[in-house]
């Protein structure tokens, strides 16, 4: 068993300890249902709300609109099969030498997929390389995925923008990446959150990314592009690095808030210590399984 397979097995085993908390929002007795967030095809009327651009005109409630002198549409409770779209950034930057970033990313993906399966989700996992490629069949358990390493040489954001797959409407979408993408996050997240029930952006970083420890005259080598940069690294330089890092992180957090996505940061070394996805638990995206 290679190291990736072992990580997938471990992640899957750990994943069965968790459930997706979004199911708690479903009405009692309908554990396989999920609340739709958009107006649309109905089974059971739930409420009215104001018309928004893009709403289907067929669902306008003309009488209620006449009474309130506002355009109101009917919102129905829709019976849906919950589905998880798991997007794993498989670029080389996710496999930083000397860090647990790769193991944590792949293990977390397996954990999320396993917990989703345990929660009654269907699940589709894709990896971002030069394009979006499936990790396995829909019915596959994470331990059955075929993953051959983090080898992508382009930014995951670029791959997502270029040829992102058609996500299943009303699906839960989780992006696992270090987000070291030069692209503007807004278009990426806008595309990712289109017709999504929930978008979770999990930034997996290594301690070495957060807090570089090297000093002196170094030749920095980008593991993804192979580009090099000769620097004399001292405290001042590291401070500037951290400033740039914070700025980048804030950009993504702002973009997530803007599109309604949840943002969590996973530190790889902390995660693989006990395999507990604390930020996801804190944000109540996952919860411990009752079983």
């Amino acid at each position: 068993m290679d190291k990736w397979a072992a990580t997938l097995v471990r992640g899957e085993q750990e994943g069965y300890r968790y459930q997706w908390r979004v199911l708690r929002r479903a009405p009692a007795g309908q554990s396989d249902r999920h609340l739709a967030s958009a107006a649309g095809s109905s089974l059971e009327f739930r409420e009215h709300r104001e018309y928004q651009a893009g709403d289907d005109l067929r669902y306008l409630d003309w009488s209620a609109s006449a009474r309130s002198e506002r355009l109101l549409v009917k919102v129905f409770e829709q019976e849906l099969h919950p589905h998880l779209e798991l997007i794993l950034d498989a670029s080389r930057s996710m496999d930083l030498e000397g860090s647990e970033k790769a193991r944590a990313s792949l293990g977390l993906a397996a954990l999320l997929a396993a917990s989703a399966i345990a929660s009654g989700f269907s699940c589709r996992a894709v990896q971002l390389r030069e394009s979006c490629q499936p990790l396995g069949c829909m019915a596959d358990r994470p331990s059955e995925w075929s993953f051959d390493g983090f080898a992508g040489r382009v930014s995951g954001g670029q791959a997502l923008l270029r040829e992102g797959p058609r996500w299943r409407p009303r699906s839960v979408r989780v992006l696992l990446s270090d987000l070291f993408w030069p692209e503007d996050p807004i278009p990426i997240l806008t595309q990712l959150s289109w017709q999504a029930a929930l978008v979770v952006v999990a930034q997996v970083v290594a301690q070495a990314d957060l807090n570089p420890t090297f000093r002196g005259q170094v030749r920095l080598v980008d593991v993804e592009t192979g580009q090099q940069r000769d620097l004399l690294v001292n405290d001042g330089v590291l401070q500037r690095y951290r400033d740039a890092w914070t700025h980048h992180q804030e950009q993504w957090q702002r973009a997530c808030r803007q599109v309604g996505a949840a943002y969590v940061q996973i530190i790889a070394e902390e995660f693989v210590r006990d395999w507990i996805p604390r930020p996801l638990l804190v944000q109540e995206i996952l919860q411990m399984s009752r079983a």
Partner: peptide, 13 residues
């Protein structure tokens, strides 16, 4: 000499 140091990205450098 420049000591090679692999990093995830040069974005912040």
């Amino acid at each position: 000499r420049y000591r090679p140091q692999p990093v995830s990205t040069l974005l912040f450098w």
